[in-house]
Amino acid sequence: HNLTITQGKLFFHYNPKLCLSEIHKMEEVSGTKGRQERNDIALKTNGDQASCENELLKFSYIRTSFDKILLRWEPYWPPDFRDLLGFMLFYKEAPYQNVTEFDGQDACGSNSWTVVDIDPPLRSNDPKSQNHPGWLMRGLKPWTQYAIFVKTLVTFSDERRTYGAKSDIIYVQTDATNPSVPLDPISVSNSSSQIILKWKPPSDPNGNITHYLVFWERQAEDSELFELDYCLKGLKLPSRTWSPPFESEDSQKHNQSEYEDSAGECCSCPKTDSQILKELEESSFRKTFEDYLHNVVFVPRKTSSGTGAEDPRPSRKRRSLGDVGNVTVAVPTVAAFPNTSSTSVPTSPEEHRPFEKVVNKESLVISGLRHFTGYRIELQACNQDTPEERCSVAAYVSARTMPEAKADDIVGPVTHEIFENNVVHLMWQEPKEPNGLIVLYEVSYRRYGDEELHLCVSRKHFALERGCRLRGLSPGNYSVRIRATSLAGNGSWTEPTYFYVTDYLDVPSNIA
């Protein structure tokens, strides 16, 4: 807008934040220059609390790290170098490059900038070799853009010569660093050979998330399962459950009422301010606690030095998902009996873990797994792929695949051998790939016309006998059925096997 004052003059007093240069501009645009008398524009009460600059400061050096910015700028000295009290560095987070010096300023003089007072450097006698002032900004957020400017702080001049310097606002972004852990990993099994893994992005990506790394490792069953005799009275049979499938998407929606109208769909109840505040506090606490764990609990591995020492970490090797089922080394339970199943799973520490690289999504279907087997899954978020990966501390989750139908069934015939004193040795093959492992066998036998009897055969007993022995049988026709019990439950009964026990007292003698 054009402003013209045809008559009258300007009068400025007691404006401590208004620089004289701005008042002189007002004289020019209003056409009143030359009308004012000496005392109409006070030299001592206008701009006496402001830094009124008329020179431009330029930054000469900028260096960044993930949490620091090192700045240096060209030296500046007023005509009387004693008038320079120091520099004021202003900075704040700036997602967009549209910041002005006066953003967030209120009537009390406060604003949204963080201000650092910096002492002037030592003055050199040689004007050509003056030290460049600077400042190291610490405690910054990774991968965050900051708006920065600097200006001088000078003393009051009796001659009211307006001098000083100020830089333009520059924008500097800190470097990326390792992201925080992925949030809320959930693993479920939808079949006997697959596990579905879902997660949420890290709360602090500290860069642009480029991919996720998912490692999985087959877990050995508890050692007590191999040692305890679950045929003993009072000892509860062990059981394991597989990871249940995901709930429906509708039930997972946030901010939804727990109660549904019987007449149909209901609208979600909005969260109160107290609920939102509580969630923010919980989120802040979780982030602080995660940072504490990362800094205190997890110790970084030592990389190899120039002395030739090897990095103890196993090298990563990509495998196809079809090879995942046989990740671990199978060892027989008892070496003397080769027909026992290889369900003991000690994992070799030198073995390469299978892994998958996930790009542009937060889910993965891990296939080719062994049925009813526990897996430990390790999830890392990465925001750099080359020249070397920059990934987060791992988040861990466990899951067990679903049982395989008929995996616990005894394959092959049940054979028998009759000894003296009416002892019958029953023999059968253990299931080759049971659900988890076989903890015991149930032997059901009966003599024709009598009630059915049951015998429990422990895992250890089966390994020693290759089956079991029935003792003290009365003469007669017998039928026997056997079924295995694994961590997933009972298998199917075998087809009945028949044998006849004679009275050993009636056996004919070869003595003449």
Score class of each variant (00 low, 15 high):
R313G: 06
P338Q: 12
P270F: 09
C267W: 01
R318D: 11
D408F: 00
Y504E: 06
E452K: 08
C391T: 10
G306D: 11
T497M: 05
N435I: 00
H371A: 10
S398R: 11
R390K: 11
P508W: 08
M427K: 13
Y441S: 03
S283Q: 14
S284M: 14
P403R: 04
T494N: 14
L237T: 03
P434N: 05
D506S: 10
V345P: 08
W216V: 06
N360V: 08
R466W: 14
A263F: 08
V331H: 15
S262I: 15
V365H: 13
N435E: 01
P403Q: 02
S509R: 11
E388V: 09
R240T: 04
V359E: 06
F226N: 06
S367R: 06
G374W: 12
E227L: 10
V501H: 05
S479W: 07
K287V: 03
T288Q: 15
L232W: 08
R376H: 14
V299Q: 14
T288H: 03
N206S: 07
F372D: 01
N477W: 08
E351Y: 02
A336D: 14
V501C: 09
P300K: 04
Y498K: 14
T333D: 05
S341Q: 12
Y441V: 03
L364V: 07
L487E: 06
Q256S: 04
S315A: 14
T401A: 09
N477L: 09
A488L: 07
V397G: 12
Y500N: 04
G207H: 02
F298I: 03
R469A: 06
D261T: 12
K406N: 15
S392G: 03
S203Y: 15
T502P: 13
S239P: 15
D204L: 13
E265W: 12
S342M: 08
S239V: 05
P338R: 11
A463F: 09
N422Q: 07
D273E: 12
K253S: 04
D450T: 10
L453Y: 15
S363D: 15
A335F: 13
V345H: 09
E279V: 09
E465F: 14
V327Y: 10
E388P: 05
R481P: 00
G489W: 13
S223D: 15
K432T: 06
M427V: 11
I482S: 02
F419S: 11
D291R: 02
D311R: 05
F215N: 07
E351D: 13
D250H: 11
K287W: 10
A381I: 00
E417N: 07
Q380D: 07
E465P: 03
R376M: 07
E265N: 15
